[in-house]
């Protein structure tokens, strides 16, 4: 995964809700700069969601639409 593309995803993990900022801060600490292209793609799509919808997913109040995002949401829930 291109380092610059990862940086872009890191910036887009800056959200309007503190709760999400904290979740993503933990996520990036665990993942460092390394990331598989497939996961990056899923993350990119998740980051396009409105903050409240994303928070609902991460807090387990809503379900992800497909298996790939569900797997990433599980990861975010666990951090």
């Amino acid at each position: 995964m291109d380092e610059r593309a990862v940086e872009r995803l890191k910036w887009r993990s800056r959200r309007g809700l503190l709760e999400l900022d904290i979740v993503f801060e933990r996520y990036w600490k665990l993942n460092g700069g390394e990331m598989a292209a497939a996961e990056a793609k899923v993350l990119e799509a998740l980051l396009l969601l409105p903050d409240n919808d994303l928070l609902d997913l991460v807090m387990g109040r809503a379900r992800a639409k497909d298996a790939a995002s569900a797997a990433l949401v599980e990861k975010l829930k666990a951090v």
Partner: peptide, 12 residues
């Protein structure tokens, strides 16, 4: 904006 407008802090 530093972030997409609807992700500004007003969203909170």
């Amino acid at each position: 904006s530093k972030v997409f407008p609807t992700r500004s802090h007003t969203v909170a």
